[in-house]
Design a binder for these strands. Sequence first.
DNA 1: ATTAATGATGTAAGCACTTACATAAATGCT
DNA 2: AGCATTTATGTAAGTGCTTACATCATTAAT
Lengths: 336, 336
Amino acid sequence: MTIYDISKQAGVSIATVSRVLNGSANVKPKTKKKVLDIIEQCGYTPNAFARGLGLNSMNTVGILCADSSDLYLAKAVYYIERNLRAGGYHSVLCCTGYDPEDMKASLSLLLNQRVDSVIMVGSTFIAAESGDNQYIKDAAQQVPIMLLNADLDCPNVYCTMCDDFKSTQDATLALLNKGINDILYLYNSNSYSGKKKLNGYQSAYLMKDVPLNKQYQQFFNGTHEDIDGVCKFLNDLHKKGLEFHAVVASEDMLAAGAIKYAKANNLSVPDDLSVIGYNNSILTTCSEPEITSVDNHLETLCSQLVKTCIGTLLGEEMPQKTIFSGELVHRASTAL
Amino acid sequence: MTIYDISKQAGVSIATVSRVLNGSANVKPKTKKKVLDIIEQCGYTPNAFARGLGLNSMNTVGILCADSSDLYLAKAVYYIERNLRAGGYHSVLCCTGYDPEDMKASLSLLLNQRVDSVIMVGSTFIAAESGDNQYIKDAAQQVPIMLLNADLDCPNVYCTMCDDFKSTQDATLALLNKGINDILYLYNSNSYSGKKKLNGYQSAYLMKDVPLNKQYQQFFNGTHEDIDGVCKFLNDLHKKGLEFHAVVASEDMLAAGAIKYAKANNLSVPDDLSVIGYNNSILTTCSEPEITSVDNHLETLCSQLVKTCIGTLLGEEMPQKTIFSGELVHRASTAL
DNA sequence: ATTAATGATGTAAGCACTTACATAAATGCT
DNA sequence: AGCATTTATGTAAGTGCTTACATCATTAAT
């Protein structure tokens, strides 16, 4: 069933059918109705490939994501997909894992599929150190690239992010202001936003003129689900004689591990140990006590990101950076 | 840059270039190399739309999912996408929400995109009651449909599932065998597998000849994140005088709520209250004590499902039903 | 060396649309 | 009514591939 069949049955040319299909102007209402009726009757749907070939677009956006099974990223993907579809776009999902080579390969794959734009979810795609982001810049020459929670100065790259630096700084300051100076900063990612968070922690110490100690900046090297691993990790630090009365974590699951550690050592939270997480995920209410955490308004971020994306595709002028601030959600794991 | 440009530069016909591109037989190695070199040199990539039009396929599979931000479904989507891509297929993600009309609309959308197959993640797509699954059967006339954790007898519909009935039956039996007869069954979904789980609970009672009481089958009507809501819900039941010494939940988040409820009422887990969850998610290790839960080997399920999908697309004969059994993972919330 | 079989390449006709341009119909104006 | 616009429709040329079929080159077999 093609546009020809419809045109024949309706007694018009294929151009007219095409016009009806695309809602172009200048089709006589009577003709339009006749064509639509026949289309309805035959259950005809235009061939998306042919249309794609003609228009050089299938209204498709690629979503690149390291690991969509991660609590936070999964939500991001979900919000982005829903917003995209509401705007008339399809989403091609591509989970890359954390290997830079896979990321590059996946990006190429999407470009070869001729997506209209690529949304990169999570700052893992941005090299925080060396700055080897050439593959993104190259891609940006073909289609607009949207980054969630990452920053890259480059034409045709649009960034929508939460101010992770400030959020972590605020969280740390809140504790310092209470006189808690031995705050362990626990993180599990050296991604772009991972660095930003770490810097936020450090800068809070600088602001308060409290000396920083590298011992208190600990990197946890484990999976995103290994809460027990985090607990053990902290136990080891404790046994090595490191004393800390607060944990600021770059992710809720690390904070959940800290809560577990406290329980295992009969430490009262927050009296003996204050704990602050990040992302305000379900883990914060699952733990006992519930965990104070930074909410970075992911839904808003994603909605804005997709607006920017679609706007750009429609040829509108869009801001290249949009920054939202996070918010510390107070719960029982701190007394601030 | 098209196949014509390449053919000109290489001094061959477009057919030959196409053959090289598709790895067809019968191209002289020398010619092949020349063509590949030029392709490499020019950075040419074939136009996916044109190819799709010619082949009537873009090697794309639709993933339909009610809510990919849900812990369990997010993992499913992740595993499926990775397996699909490893097999050379792209994934178009479509999150429908829980409205049946949206599900139908989304399915149509995917079919109009001319995906090669549709994978429906989660039994929410199957009407457990009325049996109004005609929209799936209709779709199956166009492309093979894969169902995860759902069952539907229909040609061209392939089902890969965990035996939720048996898993819940086993979990319930384990408690009954310990002499705990007042087991509260807590569920939050009337989906196909939701029903199966409930039936499993019921059948355990029948097997043991313990009388069933509807009061002990409670439906929680709330979001997938509202652990506090679950806690309150149980509190209310408790206040109304319902006595129970165990909770079997259809999802870990409900079990997490039960743990919270126990703490709020100074009940010892598992001495005063045994708790069993479902899905073996991160919530089971986040809670204190950790929660006994059914693991239904999601990764295996997804891998098998994608195998079936790709096999079918390649024209191989594939089993229409594949059933895996779940496994009760014992943790501190039970003493079995 | 001649023929048959096989291998390598080219030609051209799809695939199902969009759209620039041409043409025909309808309307407005004097 | 006659002409100029505007509106509606049709024609045909892309869009960039795949592939059946035809053709030519090469090798094997007699």
